[in-house]
Nucleic acid binder design. Structure first.
Lengths: 181, 181
DNA sequence: TTTTTGATATATCTGTTTGATATATATTAG
DNA sequence: CTAATATATATCAAACAGATATATCAAAAA
Protein backbone atom coordinates (compact mmCIF):
# COMPACT_ATOMS: atom_id res chain seq x y z
CA UNK A 1 0.00 0.00 0.00
CA UNK A 2 1.16 3.49 -0.74
CA UNK A 3 1.26 6.18 1.94
CA UNK A 4 -1.83 8.35 2.40
CA UNK A 5 -1.92 11.46 0.28
CA UNK A 6 -1.08 14.35 2.58
CA UNK A 7 -1.99 17.11 0.13
CA UNK A 8 -5.63 16.19 0.83
CA UNK A 9 -5.30 17.40 4.40
CA UNK A 10 -3.64 20.65 3.34
CA UNK A 11 -6.55 21.29 0.98
CA UNK A 12 -9.16 20.39 3.59
CA UNK A 13 -7.45 22.61 6.13
CA UNK A 14 -7.51 25.56 3.75
CA UNK A 15 -11.08 24.92 2.64
CA UNK A 16 -12.22 24.77 6.27
CA UNK A 17 -11.59 28.53 6.35
CA UNK A 18 -12.86 29.66 2.96
CA UNK A 19 -13.98 28.43 -0.43
CA UNK A 20 -11.11 28.35 -2.90
CA UNK A 21 -10.15 27.42 -6.46
CA UNK A 22 -7.20 25.14 -7.19
CA UNK A 23 -5.18 28.17 -8.15
CA UNK A 24 -6.03 29.91 -4.86
CA UNK A 25 -4.97 26.81 -2.95
CA UNK A 26 -1.60 26.84 -4.68
CA UNK A 27 -1.13 30.49 -3.72
CA UNK A 28 -2.02 29.83 -0.08
CA UNK A 29 0.45 26.93 0.08
CA UNK A 30 3.17 29.05 -1.51
CA UNK A 31 2.69 31.58 1.29
CA UNK A 32 3.09 30.92 5.00
CA UNK A 33 2.81 27.14 4.63
CA UNK A 34 5.60 26.65 2.09
CA UNK A 35 8.44 26.55 4.58
CA UNK A 36 7.15 23.31 6.10
CA UNK A 37 5.01 21.88 3.28
CA UNK A 38 4.87 22.22 -0.49
CA UNK A 39 2.24 21.70 -3.16
CA UNK A 40 2.07 21.75 -6.93
CA UNK A 41 -0.65 21.92 -9.58
CA UNK A 42 0.36 18.38 -10.46
CA UNK A 43 -0.98 17.08 -7.17
CA UNK A 44 -3.53 19.74 -6.23
CA UNK A 45 -5.83 19.34 -9.24
CA UNK A 46 -5.96 15.51 -9.21
CA UNK A 47 -6.55 15.61 -5.44
CA UNK A 48 -9.48 18.02 -5.87
CA UNK A 49 -11.04 15.68 -8.44
CA UNK A 50 -10.61 12.61 -6.22
CA UNK A 51 -11.88 14.31 -3.09
CA UNK A 52 -14.97 15.55 -4.88
CA UNK A 53 -15.70 11.96 -5.94
CA UNK A 54 -15.20 10.87 -2.32
CA UNK A 55 -17.61 13.56 -1.14
CA UNK A 56 -15.08 15.37 1.04
CA UNK A 57 -15.48 18.58 -0.91
CA UNK A 58 -18.13 19.95 -3.29
CA UNK A 59 -17.66 21.80 -6.52
CA UNK A 60 -19.44 25.00 -7.45
CA UNK A 61 -18.97 26.85 -10.71
CA UNK A 62 -18.37 30.56 -10.14
CA UNK A 63 -17.18 31.33 -13.66
CA UNK A 64 -17.43 34.92 -14.86
CA UNK A 65 -17.77 35.48 -18.59
CA UNK A 66 -15.57 33.12 -20.59
CA UNK A 67 -13.21 32.73 -17.60
CA UNK A 68 -13.43 29.30 -15.99
CA UNK A 69 -13.52 29.34 -12.19
CA UNK A 70 -14.26 26.27 -10.09
CA UNK A 71 -14.56 26.97 -6.40
CA UNK A 72 -14.51 24.15 -3.87
CA UNK A 73 -16.30 23.99 -0.53
CA UNK A 74 -15.59 21.54 2.31
CA UNK A 75 -18.41 19.13 3.19
CA UNK A 76 -19.33 17.71 6.59
CA UNK A 77 -17.53 14.49 5.68
CA UNK A 78 -14.50 16.62 4.79
CA UNK A 79 -14.53 18.36 8.18
CA UNK A 80 -14.68 14.96 9.83
CA UNK A 81 -11.72 13.69 7.80
CA UNK A 82 -9.73 16.81 8.71
CA UNK A 83 -10.41 16.40 12.43
CA UNK A 84 -9.59 12.69 12.33
CA UNK A 85 -6.26 13.47 10.75
CA UNK A 86 -5.56 16.16 13.37
CA UNK A 87 -6.19 13.64 16.13
CA UNK A 88 -4.15 10.80 14.56
CA UNK A 89 -0.91 9.93 16.34
CA UNK A 90 1.20 9.13 13.31
CA UNK A 91 3.18 11.96 11.71
CA UNK A 92 5.78 12.09 9.00
CA UNK A 93 8.48 14.66 9.67
CA UNK A 94 11.27 14.84 7.17
CA UNK A 95 14.35 16.93 6.60
CA UNK A 96 15.85 16.89 3.10
CA UNK A 97 18.92 19.11 3.07
CA UNK A 98 21.24 18.92 0.11
CA UNK A 99 23.63 21.21 1.96
CA UNK A 100 24.18 18.51 4.59
CA UNK A 101 24.56 15.89 1.90
CA UNK A 102 27.31 17.91 0.26
CA UNK A 103 28.97 18.46 3.61
CA UNK A 104 28.83 14.75 4.39
CA UNK A 105 30.87 14.05 1.27
CA UNK A 106 32.92 17.20 1.69
CA UNK A 107 36.25 15.41 2.16
CA UNK A 108 36.24 14.63 -1.59
CA UNK A 109 36.99 18.27 -2.33
CA UNK A 110 39.06 21.14 -0.96
CA UNK A 111 38.05 22.59 2.43
CA UNK A 112 37.20 25.93 0.80
CA UNK A 113 34.45 24.28 -1.24
CA UNK A 114 32.67 23.11 1.93
CA UNK A 115 33.16 26.47 3.63
CA UNK A 116 31.65 28.14 0.59
CA UNK A 117 28.72 25.71 0.58
CA UNK A 118 28.01 26.59 4.20
CA UNK A 119 28.09 30.28 3.28
CA UNK A 120 25.58 29.73 0.49
CA UNK A 121 23.30 28.01 2.99
CA UNK A 122 23.86 30.76 5.55
CA UNK A 123 22.81 33.42 3.04
CA UNK A 124 19.64 31.49 2.16
CA UNK A 125 18.70 31.12 5.81
CA UNK A 126 19.36 34.76 6.61
CA UNK A 127 17.00 35.82 3.84
CA UNK A 128 14.28 33.38 4.89
CA UNK A 129 14.68 34.41 8.53
CA UNK A 130 13.99 38.04 7.62
CA UNK A 131 10.73 36.98 5.96
CA UNK A 132 9.69 34.90 8.95
CA UNK A 133 10.31 37.80 11.31
CA UNK A 134 8.06 40.02 9.21
CA UNK A 135 5.32 37.35 9.37
CA UNK A 136 5.83 37.13 13.13
CA UNK A 137 5.42 40.83 13.75
CA UNK A 138 2.28 40.98 11.65
CA UNK A 139 0.69 38.01 13.41
CA UNK A 140 1.64 39.26 16.87
CA UNK A 141 -0.67 42.24 16.41
CA UNK A 142 -3.76 40.14 15.77
CA UNK A 143 -3.70 37.35 18.32
CA UNK A 144 -7.35 37.93 19.12
CA UNK A 145 -7.95 35.74 16.06
CA UNK A 146 -7.63 32.20 17.38
CA UNK A 147 -6.14 30.92 14.10
CA UNK A 148 -3.31 33.42 14.37
CA UNK A 149 -2.09 31.88 17.62
CA UNK A 150 -1.50 28.65 15.70
CA UNK A 151 0.05 30.39 12.73
CA UNK A 152 2.38 32.23 15.09
CA UNK A 153 3.55 28.96 16.59
CA UNK A 154 4.63 27.59 13.23
CA UNK A 155 6.41 30.84 12.38
CA UNK A 156 8.12 30.81 15.77
CA UNK A 157 9.29 27.26 15.02
CA UNK A 158 10.91 28.56 11.85
CA UNK A 159 12.59 31.48 13.60
CA UNK A 160 14.04 29.36 16.40
CA UNK A 161 15.38 26.65 14.12
CA UNK A 162 16.78 29.09 11.56
CA UNK A 163 18.59 30.92 14.35
CA UNK A 164 20.03 27.59 15.46
CA UNK A 165 21.14 26.97 11.86
CA UNK A 166 23.00 30.28 11.78
CA UNK A 167 24.80 29.48 15.04
CA UNK A 168 25.79 26.12 13.59
CA UNK A 169 27.08 27.78 10.39
CA UNK A 170 29.60 29.80 12.40
CA UNK A 171 30.73 26.81 14.44
CA UNK A 172 31.01 24.64 11.35
CA UNK A 173 33.04 27.15 9.35
CA UNK A 174 35.39 27.66 12.28
CA UNK A 175 35.84 23.94 12.75
CA UNK A 176 36.62 23.38 9.09
CA UNK A 177 39.18 26.18 9.00
CA UNK A 178 40.83 25.15 12.30
CA UNK A 179 40.93 21.42 11.74
CA UNK A 180 41.78 21.13 8.11
CA UNK A 181 44.32 23.72 7.06
CA UNK B 1 12.46 19.35 -17.67
CA UNK B 2 12.50 17.44 -14.40
CA UNK B 3 14.98 18.21 -11.63
CA UNK B 4 18.25 16.29 -11.54
CA UNK B 5 18.17 13.00 -9.73
CA UNK B 6 19.88 13.55 -6.39
CA UNK B 7 20.14 9.90 -5.40
CA UNK B 8 22.90 9.62 -8.03
CA UNK B 9 25.10 11.90 -5.94
CA UNK B 10 24.42 9.98 -2.74
CA UNK B 11 25.46 6.79 -4.51
CA UNK B 12 28.58 8.36 -6.04
CA UNK B 13 29.54 9.79 -2.66
CA UNK B 14 29.25 6.40 -0.99
CA UNK B 15 31.06 4.59 -3.81
CA UNK B 16 33.90 7.11 -3.63
CA UNK B 17 34.82 5.44 -0.31
CA UNK B 18 34.22 1.77 -1.05
CA UNK B 19 32.70 -0.64 -3.54
CA UNK B 20 29.13 -1.51 -2.62
CA UNK B 21 26.06 -3.47 -3.69
CA UNK B 22 22.65 -1.80 -3.99
CA UNK B 23 21.67 -3.42 -0.72
CA UNK B 24 24.79 -2.06 0.99
CA UNK B 25 24.01 1.42 -0.33
CA UNK B 26 20.53 1.23 1.17
CA UNK B 27 22.00 0.27 4.54
CA UNK B 28 24.51 3.13 4.47
CA UNK B 29 21.74 5.64 3.65
CA UNK B 30 19.56 4.26 6.43
CA UNK B 31 22.40 4.94 8.86
CA UNK B 32 23.97 8.33 9.53
CA UNK B 33 22.63 9.92 6.32
CA UNK B 34 18.94 9.17 6.87
CA UNK B 35 18.20 12.15 9.05
CA UNK B 36 18.88 14.58 6.19
CA UNK B 37 18.38 12.37 3.12
CA UNK B 38 16.47 9.20 2.33
CA UNK B 39 16.76 6.42 -0.24
CA UNK B 40 14.81 3.35 -1.25
CA UNK B 41 15.36 0.26 -3.38
CA UNK B 42 12.88 1.77 -5.80
CA UNK B 43 15.25 4.55 -6.73
CA UNK B 44 18.63 3.01 -5.88
CA UNK B 45 18.48 0.06 -8.29
CA UNK B 46 17.21 2.02 -11.31
CA UNK B 47 19.83 4.72 -10.60
CA UNK B 48 22.59 2.11 -10.51
CA UNK B 49 21.47 0.75 -13.88
CA UNK B 50 21.34 4.23 -15.47
CA UNK B 51 24.65 5.34 -14.05
CA UNK B 52 26.38 2.22 -15.31
CA UNK B 53 25.05 2.98 -18.81
CA UNK B 54 26.35 6.55 -18.43
CA UNK B 55 29.75 5.25 -17.39
CA UNK B 56 29.75 6.89 -13.97
CA UNK B 57 30.08 3.55 -12.20
CA UNK B 58 31.16 0.06 -13.24
CA UNK B 59 29.64 -3.27 -12.39
CA UNK B 60 31.50 -6.32 -11.17
CA UNK B 61 29.92 -9.62 -10.30
CA UNK B 62 31.06 -10.89 -6.89
CA UNK B 63 28.41 -13.59 -6.57
CA UNK B 64 29.12 -16.46 -4.18
CA UNK B 65 27.41 -19.76 -4.92
CA UNK B 66 23.81 -19.29 -6.00
CA UNK B 67 23.67 -15.92 -4.23
CA UNK B 68 23.62 -12.98 -6.63
CA UNK B 69 25.91 -10.12 -5.65
CA UNK B 70 26.62 -7.14 -7.90
CA UNK B 71 29.21 -4.74 -6.55
CA UNK B 72 29.61 -1.27 -8.07
CA UNK B 73 32.79 0.79 -8.35
CA UNK B 74 33.02 4.50 -9.11
CA UNK B 75 34.78 5.44 -12.37
CA UNK B 76 36.91 8.51 -13.14
CA UNK B 77 33.89 10.10 -14.85
CA UNK B 78 31.91 9.36 -11.69
CA UNK B 79 34.45 11.10 -9.47
CA UNK B 80 34.32 14.08 -11.78
CA UNK B 81 30.51 14.21 -11.61
CA UNK B 82 30.66 14.02 -7.80
CA UNK B 83 33.13 16.88 -7.55
CA UNK B 84 31.16 19.01 -10.00
CA UNK B 85 28.06 18.55 -7.89
CA UNK B 86 29.98 19.44 -4.71
CA UNK B 87 31.14 22.68 -6.32
CA UNK B 88 27.74 23.64 -7.79
CA UNK B 89 26.02 26.64 -6.16
CA UNK B 90 22.45 25.44 -6.38
CA UNK B 91 21.05 23.44 -3.48
CA UNK B 92 17.61 22.16 -2.59
CA UNK B 93 16.88 22.31 1.12
CA UNK B 94 13.46 21.25 2.21
CA UNK B 95 11.59 20.82 5.48
CA UNK B 96 8.48 18.65 5.37
CA UNK B 97 6.96 18.54 8.85
CA UNK B 98 3.48 17.15 9.25
CA UNK B 99 3.57 18.24 12.89
CA UNK B 100 3.70 21.88 11.78
CA UNK B 101 0.97 21.27 9.24
CA UNK B 102 -1.29 19.91 11.97
CA UNK B 103 -0.43 22.80 14.22
CA UNK B 104 -1.18 25.30 11.45
CA UNK B 105 -4.73 23.93 11.24
CA UNK B 106 -4.91 23.33 14.97
CA UNK B 107 -7.75 25.81 15.60
CA UNK B 108 -10.14 23.28 14.01
CA UNK B 109 -9.83 21.09 17.08
CA UNK B 110 -9.58 21.38 20.86
CA UNK B 111 -6.40 22.93 22.28
CA UNK B 112 -5.51 19.63 23.97
CA UNK B 113 -5.20 17.93 20.60
CA UNK B 114 -2.50 20.38 19.49
CA UNK B 115 -0.73 20.13 22.84
CA UNK B 116 -0.74 16.36 22.49
CA UNK B 117 0.59 16.61 18.93
CA UNK B 118 3.48 18.72 20.16
CA UNK B 119 4.18 16.11 22.84
CA UNK B 120 4.27 13.34 20.25
CA UNK B 121 6.79 15.39 18.26
CA UNK B 122 8.80 16.14 21.41
CA UNK B 123 9.08 12.44 22.20
CA UNK B 124 10.24 11.64 18.68
CA UNK B 125 12.89 14.35 18.79
CA UNK B 126 14.13 13.32 22.25
CA UNK B 127 14.69 9.77 20.99
CA UNK B 128 16.44 10.90 17.82
CA UNK B 129 18.57 13.34 19.79
CA UNK B 130 19.85 10.52 21.99
CA UNK B 131 20.95 8.61 18.89
CA UNK B 132 22.69 11.65 17.43
CA UNK B 133 24.59 12.20 20.67
CA UNK B 134 25.86 8.62 20.57
CA UNK B 135 27.03 9.17 16.98
CA UNK B 136 28.70 12.39 18.06
CA UNK B 137 30.67 10.81 20.88
CA UNK B 138 31.87 7.98 18.66
CA UNK B 139 33.00 10.32 15.91
CA UNK B 140 34.71 12.71 18.31
CA UNK B 141 37.20 10.00 19.22
CA UNK B 142 38.39 9.51 15.64
CA UNK B 143 38.82 12.97 14.16
CA UNK B 144 42.21 12.00 12.76
CA UNK B 145 40.14 10.53 9.93
CA UNK B 146 39.43 13.52 7.69
CA UNK B 147 36.00 12.16 6.68
CA UNK B 148 34.93 12.05 10.31
CA UNK B 149 35.32 15.82 10.65
CA UNK B 150 32.67 16.20 7.96
CA UNK B 151 30.42 13.53 9.43
CA UNK B 152 30.68 15.24 12.81
CA UNK B 153 29.53 18.53 11.31
CA UNK B 154 26.32 16.98 9.98
CA UNK B 155 25.65 15.28 13.30
CA UNK B 156 26.30 18.52 15.14
CA UNK B 157 23.77 20.20 12.84
CA UNK B 158 21.22 17.64 13.95
CA UNK B 159 21.98 18.07 17.63
CA UNK B 160 21.76 21.85 17.55
CA UNK B 161 18.52 21.96 15.60
CA UNK B 162 16.88 19.22 17.64
CA UNK B 163 17.76 21.07 20.81
CA UNK B 164 16.15 24.17 19.33
CA UNK B 165 13.06 22.07 18.55
CA UNK B 166 12.80 20.96 22.17
CA UNK B 167 13.04 24.53 23.41
CA UNK B 168 10.29 25.49 20.98
CA UNK B 169 8.11 22.60 22.19
CA UNK B 170 8.09 24.01 25.71
CA UNK B 171 7.36 27.53 24.56
CA UNK B 172 4.63 26.36 22.20
CA UNK B 173 2.87 24.20 24.80
CA UNK B 174 2.97 27.04 27.32
CA UNK B 175 1.59 29.50 24.79
CA UNK B 176 -1.28 27.21 23.85
CA UNK B 177 -2.25 26.59 27.45
CA UNK B 178 -1.97 30.27 28.43
CA UNK B 179 -3.68 31.80 25.43
CA UNK B 180 -6.46 29.40 24.75
CA UNK B 181 -8.04 28.14 27.93
C1' DT C 1 -4.81 53.02 -29.24
C1' DT C 2 -2.61 48.94 -29.50
C1' DT C 3 0.47 45.84 -27.61
C1' DT C 4 2.58 43.41 -24.29
C1' DT C 5 3.27 41.89 -19.84
C1' DG C 6 1.68 39.68 -15.79
C1' DA C 7 -1.89 37.61 -13.06
C1' DT C 8 -5.64 34.27 -12.97
C1' DA C 9 -7.12 29.61 -13.86
C1' DT C 10 -7.40 24.67 -15.28
C1' DA C 11 -5.11 20.73 -16.76
C1' DT C 12 -1.71 17.34 -18.21
C1' DC C 13 2.90 15.15 -18.89
C1' DT C 14 7.34 13.33 -17.74
C1' DG C 15 10.43 11.94 -14.50
C1' DT C 16 11.45 10.97 -9.68
C1' DT C 17 10.58 9.17 -5.31
C1' DT C 18 8.26 6.43 -1.81
C1' DG C 19 6.66 2.41 0.23
C1' DA C 20 5.24 -2.05 -0.46
C1' DT C 21 5.83 -6.40 -2.20
C1' DA C 22 7.86 -10.54 -4.60
C1' DT C 23 11.47 -13.80 -4.82
C1' DA C 24 15.37 -16.37 -3.39
C1' DT C 25 19.56 -17.56 -0.75
C1' DA C 26 22.43 -17.61 3.45
C1' DT C 27 23.08 -17.38 8.35
C1' DT C 28 21.96 -17.49 13.14
C1' DA C 29 19.25 -18.64 17.32
C1' DG C 30 16.51 -21.58 19.82
C1' DC D 1 16.48 -29.13 12.71
C1' DT D 2 13.73 -25.59 12.04
C1' DA D 3 12.24 -20.93 12.28
C1' DA D 4 13.45 -16.42 12.04
C1' DT D 5 16.36 -12.96 10.41
C1' DA D 6 19.69 -10.92 7.22
C1' DT D 7 21.29 -10.53 2.53
C1' DA D 8 20.28 -9.33 -2.16
C1' DT D 9 17.95 -7.94 -6.54
C1' DA D 10 14.05 -6.24 -8.66
C1' DT D 11 9.52 -4.26 -9.82
C1' DC D 12 4.95 -1.93 -9.13
C1' DA D 13 1.48 1.54 -7.91
C1' DA D 14 0.75 5.76 -6.00
C1' DA D 15 2.34 10.23 -4.94
C1' DC D 16 4.88 14.20 -5.98
C1' DA D 17 7.67 17.88 -8.42
C1' DG D 18 8.44 20.78 -12.03
C1' DA D 19 7.57 22.09 -16.45
C1' DT D 20 4.56 23.13 -19.96
C1' DA D 21 0.18 24.02 -22.64
C1' DT D 22 -3.83 26.71 -23.12
C1' DA D 23 -6.79 30.51 -22.41
C1' DT D 24 -8.81 34.71 -20.23
C1' DC D 25 -8.49 39.17 -18.34
C1' DA D 26 -6.50 43.55 -16.39
C1' DA D 27 -3.15 46.94 -16.33
C1' DA D 28 0.79 49.19 -17.90
C1' DA D 29 3.72 50.60 -21.55
C1' DA D 30 4.67 51.81 -26.27
Amino acid sequence: MAKERKIDMVILGLLSHEDLTGYDIKKRIDGAISFFWKGSFGNIYPALKDMETQGLISKNDTSVGGRERITYKITEAGEKALNNWLKAEQVENELKYETLLKLFFGASERTEVSVHNIEVFEKQIQDDLKMLKVYYETLEKSLDNKDHVYYLLTVSFGIETYEAYLKWCNKAKKMLIDNLK
